Amino acid sequence: MQTIYLQEPYNKKQIPNEAIVLAMGFFDGVHCGHRKVIEIAKKEAQKLGVKLAVLTFDRYPGLVYRKTSPDFKYLTTLKTKLRYFADLGVDITYVVAFNEQLVPMDPQTFIDKYVVDLHAKCLVAGSDFTYGKREIANMQTLPQYAKERFTIIEVPHLEDQVGKISSTRIRNLLAKGQVAAANELLGADYSNTGLVIHGQKMGRKLGYPTINVDVDAAERIPGEGVYAVRVRFVGETKEYYGMASIGKNETVGDNLPVTVEVHLLNFQADVYGREVVILWDEYLRSMEKFSSLEQLMQQLAADQLATEKYYHINNN
């Protein structure tokens, strides 16, 4: 997949001189609804005999247009998002910098520069996609800016028995620790990537050594609790089972920061400095402050049994 980074005002020489079908959106999480948009765009590209392109942004537009909290955390970093696009068969991804020149751009100029000048024969987007202020730059007003220079495919919201599948809904599920439900909406296993760093080494003293993972500060982690997880070291295909905790380790101290720690089952190796991917499978329990380290050790033993049961591991 070819990735082209555009920053306003961009150089037109960056744009391949060939027709495309363009799927447009922020696609945070690349969930089932997003995948539907891209799949429909892919079918249209195949029908027209042109390449499939995706246009996304380098940061969440809601940070500007909807005054989203500045500590907003992403479901997928740009690196992960690009990997998903490639897996879905996208030929070209345009990553547009959401900078000071782009923000005030009027809808007509945006469509002219980021659809027509990209040689799009068809634009595919979800029903709620906006390309500026929602009241004037929405899918309903798009035909007046398109001026019949390209066709438009508006993809209805993908819904399940609960309602619309959305990034917001997935974020809320993760905050509650409901990773299995979030995975259903994502159509993939939710994951975090980070470096293994040194911690307090308390787990080692208790007989349950952990790897402490420094997750990218911009990446959303599930809510505090203990989880059954799989871990893969970047560059390898093998996955290791483990039990992960997200919390402040209140049993061993007060006012500690939230950490992500994983005890890997049947694993012994020095992996400091390695990059790992944590795949979140199942919520096991909430975090607790235990009255003694002995009580904590008993709970860790129970957590390991629960993890082994979840993954059908028989150590007998």
Rank of each mutant, 00 (worst) to 15 (best):
A146S: 04
K121D: 10
S127A: 08
L102I: 15
G89Y: 09
L158F: 02
Q101Y: 15
Q144H: 09
R134P: 00
A146C: 08
Y114E: 05
F150I: 12
V103F: 12
Q140G: 09
I152D: 01
K147V: 05
D128N: 15
L158H: 00
Q140H: 07
E154S: 05
L118M: 12
D117T: 12
L123P: 06
A146R: 07
H157T: 08
E159M: 02
F129V: 13
T109L: 15
H157P: 01
Y84R: 08
R134E: 06
V124H: 11
S127G: 02
T93F: 06
G126M: 04
R171P: 11
I170Q: 11
A97T: 13
V124W: 14
E100W: 01
Q161L: 05
G126E: 03
Q161D: 07
D91Q: 11
P156K: 03
Q140F: 10
M105F: 14
D117Y: 10
E154M: 02
G163Y: 03
G163S: 03
M139S: 08
Q101P: 07
I111K: 02
S167H: 06
D91P: 01
I111P: 02
I153P: 06
S166I: 13
Y131K: 06
M105C: 09
Q161I: 06
Q140P: 01
Y84T: 12
T130E: 04
N99C: 01
F150H: 15
E159T: 03
V155R: 04
Q108F: 12
L142C: 10
F85S: 10
T93L: 10
M105W: 14
F150E: 11
L102E: 08
E148M: 08
G126K: 10
H157Y: 15
L123K: 05
G126T: 05
L158I: 10
D87C: 04
F129N: 13
R171Q: 10
F98C: 02
I152K: 07
D112L: 06
V95W: 01
I136T: 10
F129A: 08
Q108T: 10
R169Q: 11
L123R: 09
A137M: 06
R134Q: 12
E100C: 00
N99G: 02
T151V: 13
Q108N: 08
V96S: 00
V95Q: 07
Y131D: 01
I165H: 02
R169N: 03
V95G: 03
T151D: 15
Y145C: 00
A120H: 00
F129T: 11
S167G: 04
R171M: 06
Q144A: 12
D112C: 03
A86W: 01
D106I: 15
G132Y: 14
Q161Y: 09
Y131L: 05
N99T: 00
P107R: 05
L88Y: 12
L123F: 07
K113M: 06
Q140V: 09
F129H: 04
S167F: 04
D106Q: 11
S167I: 02
M139Q: 11
I165A: 02
Q108V: 04
E135R: 09
Y84P: 03
G163R: 01
A137I: 15
Y131P: 02
T168H: 06
F150A: 15
K147S: 06
T93D: 04
P156W: 05
P104A: 08
L88D: 10
S167K: 05
V103Q: 15
A86F: 01
T141L: 14
T151E: 10
I136C: 04
K121T: 07
T168A: 04
D91M: 03
F129E: 11
V115M: 13
Y131G: 03
E100M: 00
I165K: 01
